[in-house]
Design a protein around this nucleic acid. Structure first.
Lengths: 223, 223
DNA sequence: ACAGTAGAACTGTTCTACAGTTCCGCCTCG
DNA sequence: CGAGGCGGAACTGTAGAACAGTTCTACTGT
């Protein structure tokens, strides 16, 4: 509230900014899975050196949206059955662990809020928002483990999965009926609310298994 | 075999090799926590371009042993009370999750093997080996979750913790009595063997809490 | 003991260059 | 018409030099 209000020293590098920008664009669907990120093209387009782009892309790799192949550079990740299975298995383990004990008040409030957001997101009929809210709800559950490291890890899984879901959603009829998305989460939310750990675990397992299968099906039917 | 025995196409970049080498050296204690990695020094010493070193260091960052500070470059990670607590909390959650159900035969065999290795490592009286075997035992437990993603994540935690433990072990009397290391793991191993999930969880919680406290104490008494 | 300062040491970034790979379209040979 | 095979274009991986802006260090004066 002083005269320095809103003043921030730009404590970030060009490479980092470029990485952030690219990350955003990738998640927004500007690149297709498997597509290559060409350094020189990006460099000239943004008016920066190729070196810097290369560093940015290396940072991107850290974010998980891109992987490096020797002599091919950065390639947008692309879902395979194995990857998807891995992703869902990890989620299942983490969420089950988070629901092993009844959730405490504070944490329950967080989960409730995420659940509410899922409701408003589905009402908007915006696929991107729905997917994000869906995953955020699950992240809220994982957050009840109380480990920032695990949260960060889960966030990484989430980013990756979100990208796949958005990329695959062209072939997807599911989110055309958004009300179903809320309905799918309802039994789980109920169990969590009631503090019935065992039921919550059953529900989350079932929910995740169902979704994993659906994604696998979509993937198999041409990704 | 054939005339091509042992021939391997060099499917890796210079930067990657440098990163691997540095990683190894860091874990071996060639750098102290908080120390800076100077690009030009490394470049001239290895006879490669600074660009390449910079990329290597960016890869290192991914491995978690180094973090970047603007205008200071790569800095070796250094334990703080918060970091250590985070690390142990994450471990506690994952290992507890892994022990929620009795471990199946195959997985038990893996854990048993790791436990045996811990025994031989302690016999060697090599601090580095003991620490590695200790952490590998716990990784074996986590592996029973059956998620390669979680394993990779846990491996990252492990690397970081291993570095801290080695760096702090100068002030540490614990590993001077290696027999105690095995003894500390025995109740847990017993519970796992007997398939008593609840007891195993109690044991692992206690074990981890004890170790967390010890490390915190050492850290507080000048790290 | 302490703040201030000049110069050395580094990082972040750009540009240019080039060898080695991969990509892509065309051509030839079945 | 399909499967290789070939050659040039397009890129990546790496090097090296340069420079502005930051951080570090050691000295200076108070």
């Amino acid at each position: 509230m002083t005269a320095l209000d809103g003043l921030v020293a730009r404590r970030t590098t060009t490479a980092q900014q470029v990485a952030d920008g690219l990350s955003e664009r990738i998640l927004a669907g500007a690149f297709r899975p498997g597509e290559r990120l060409r350094e020189s093209a990006i460099a000239t387009e943004l008016g920066i050196a190729r070196n810097t782009v290369r560093e940015a892309v290396r940072l991107l790799e850290h974010g998980g949206l891109v992987r490096f192949e020797v002599n091919r550079g950065a390639v947008i990740i692309s879902p395979t059955p194995e990857t998807v299975e891995d992703l869902y298995t990890a989620r299942e383990r983490l969420e089950t662990a988070a629901l092993a004990m009844p959730i405490t008040g504070d944490q329950l409030a967080v989960v409730e809020e995420a659940y509410a957001s899922l409701g408003t997101a589905t009402a908007s009929h915006e696929r991107a928002d729905i997917v994000a809210a869906d995953l955020a709800f699950h992240a809220a559950i994982v957050a009840s483990l109380g480990s920032s490291r695990i949260d960060a890890f889960y966030a990484g899984l989430t980013r990756e999965l979100r990208f796949y879901l958005m990329a695959l959603s062209a072939y997807e009829r599911e989110y055309e009926n958004p009300r179903k998305v809320v309905a799918e989460h309802e039994p789980l939310m109920d169990a969590v609310r009631e503090g019935d750990a065992e039921r919550a675990q059953r529900e989350v397992r079932h929910h995740i298994a169902t979704n994993a299968e659906r994604v696998q099906r979509i993937l198999a039917a041409r990704g």
